[in-house]
C-alpha cells in the first residue's frame, strides 16, 4: 500500500512537472475561447458553431501534416478563425485510411482534410475506394514542383541529352524516387519522358523510401532522382547534384532555385505541379464551403503564411471551390491515361 502510494506520487510529480512547461499554450487556447464567444454572436451569415477538425491523412511530420498544422497555426494566430482547430493524423495506406474516415463524416461542416496528387493517383491504382469525387474540394493553397536531379559528374547536362539516351535504350538508366511505382515521383518523370518520346513502359524505376533516393544518386547506384525541388536544392548548392529540369511552367524564385531550367525552355512541352489543398466531406453546406473558401483565401494572402511558405520552399497557388474541382477532374483524366499506358491502372 505504501509502495503504491509512492508510485502514485511519483506519477503525479511527473505530471505536474510536464504540465508546467506547456501552460503557455494552454493559456492561448483559453484566450481563444473567450474571443470566440463574442464574435460568434454578431454574425448573420453561416458561422462556425463548434471546433474544427483538420485531418492529415498521413503521419506526423509529412507534407500533409505540416500543411495542416501550419495552416491551423496561422488561422488561429491571425484570428482568421476563432474556433479551436484540432489537427488529427489518420495515417495509413497512402491516405486511404484518412479518406475512408472522412467519407464517414458526410454532411459535416466542421471536418476538413488536406490532400494532394495522391487523392487522384491512389484510387486509380485501386488502393482507395474514395477519390476526390467523393469529397468537396474547398480551396487549393500550395504548389510544389518536381525536379529531376543527377550526380554532378553525370554525363547528361540537360533533359534532352538524358532522354536521347533513354530513347535508344530505356533500360540503361535507373530512375529513383521515394514513392512506389504509379505514384507521384514515378508519374512526374514518366509524363516528361512521354512528352519527349521515350518508351515509357520500359522505364526502370526504383522506389527507395527513407531518403534512399538521394543516397543512391550520390553513390552512383541510381542515375536520376525524381523528387520535389526542395529535396535537392541544398545538394545543388553544395555542388553534389545538378538539376536537369524542374517541372514548373516558369523558373522558380530563389538564389539557387532560379538556376534550374524548366523542361519547357528545353523544348519539352509538359508541366507537373504537386498542388496541395483542403477538402471537406461530401454534401457540405454550400454556405460553409463559401465560408472556408474565404478563410483560406485570407490565409493564402496573409503575410504570416507567406513566411511559412518561404521557410518550406512552397509556392502560392490559390484555387477556389469551382476552379479547383475542374482542375482536379482534368488532372485525373490526364493521369488515368498515363497509368493505363503503364499497365498500372486497376
Amino acid at each position: 500500500m505504501k509502495k503504491l502510494l509512492a508510485l502514485l506520487i511519483f506519477v503525479l510529480m511527473f505530471l505536474a512537472a510536464c504540465g508546467g512547461e506547456n501552460t503557455s499554450s494552454n493559456n492561448d487556447n483559453a484566450n481563444d475561447e473567450d474571443t470566440e464567444e463574442n464574435s460568434g454572436e454578431d454574425n448573420d451569415e453561416w458561422a462556425l458553431s463548434e471546433s474544427i477538425e483538420i485531418v492529415a491523412p498521413a503521419g506526423a511530420g509529412g507534407g500533409w501534416d505540416t500543411t495542416a498544422r501550419m495552416s491551423a497555426q496561422v488561422l488561429t494566430e491571425e484570428s482568421l478563425i476563432d474556433q479551436d482547430i484540432g489537427v488529427v493524423n489518420k495515417e495509413g495506406a497512402g491516405g486511404a485510411i484518412g479518406w475512408a474516415y472522412m467519407a464517414e463524416q458526410e454532411g459535416s461542416n466542421h471536418n476538413l482534410f488536406v490532400s494532394s496528387s495522391p487523392i487522384l493517383l491512389v484510387p486509380l491504382n485501386g488502393q482507395s475506394e474514395y477519390g476526390h469525387e467523393d469529397f468537396t474540394p474547398i480551396a487549393n493553397v500550395i504548389a510544389d514542383y518536381g525536379a529531376f536531379a543527377v550526380a554532378k559528374d553525370a554525363k547528361w547536362d540537360n533533359l534532352n541529352e538524358l532522354f536521347e539516351d533513354m530513347k535508344e535504350d530505356p533500360q540503361s538508366v535507373t530512375i529513383v524516387g521515394t514513392s512506389a511505382p504509379g505514384s507521384m515521383d514515378h508519374i512526374q518523370f514518366v509524363r516528361f519522358a512521354k512528352a519527349a518520346g521515350v518508351d515509357i513502359t520500359k522505364i526502370k524505376y526504383v522506389s527507395a523510401p527513407d531518403a534512399g533516393g538521394v543516397t543512391q544518386v550520390l553513390n552512383g547506384s541510381a542515375d536520376v532522382f525524381s523528387t520535389g525541388v526542395a529535396e535537392v536544392a541544398e545538394q545543388v548548392r553544395a555542388d553534389k547534384l545538378k538539376v536537369l529540369a524542374v517541372t514548373s511552367e516558369e523558373r522558380l524564385d530563389g538564389e539557387v532555385l532560379s538556376t534550374f531550367p524548366t523542361a519547357k525552355e528545353q523544348g519539352i512541352d509538359e508541366t507537373f505541379v504537386n498542388w496541395r489543398g483542403f477538402f471537406g466531406p461530401k454534401d457540405m453546406d454550400p454556405a460553409a464551403v463559401e465560408y472556408y473558401e474565404n478563410k483560406f483565401k485570407e490565409l493564402s494572402d496573409s503575410e504570416a503564411f507567406a513566411e511559412v511558405r518561404a521557410n518550406y520552399g512552397w509556392n502560392e497557388m490559390y484555387m477556389g471551390n469551382e476552379e479547383y474541382k475542374q482542375f482536379l477532374d482534368e488532372e485525373k483524366e490526364n493521369l488515368k491515361s498515363i497509368l493505363e499506358e503503364l499497365g498500372l491502372l486497376e
Binding site: 503504491l4 502514485l8 506519477v11 503525479l12 505530471l15 510536464c18 504540465g19 506547456n22 494552454n26 484540432g86 489537427v87 488529427v88
Partner: peptide
C-alpha cells in the same frame, strides 16, 4: 483509485498536454 487515476492521467497527458486525440 488505481483504475481511475491511471487512465485519467494518461488521457490528460495525451489529449491536453500532447494534443493527441
Amino acid at each position: 483509485i488505481v483504475s481511475i487515476v491511471f487512465p485519467i492521467a494518461l488521457y490528460s497527458i495525451f489529449v491536453f498536454m500532447l494534443q493527441i486525440k
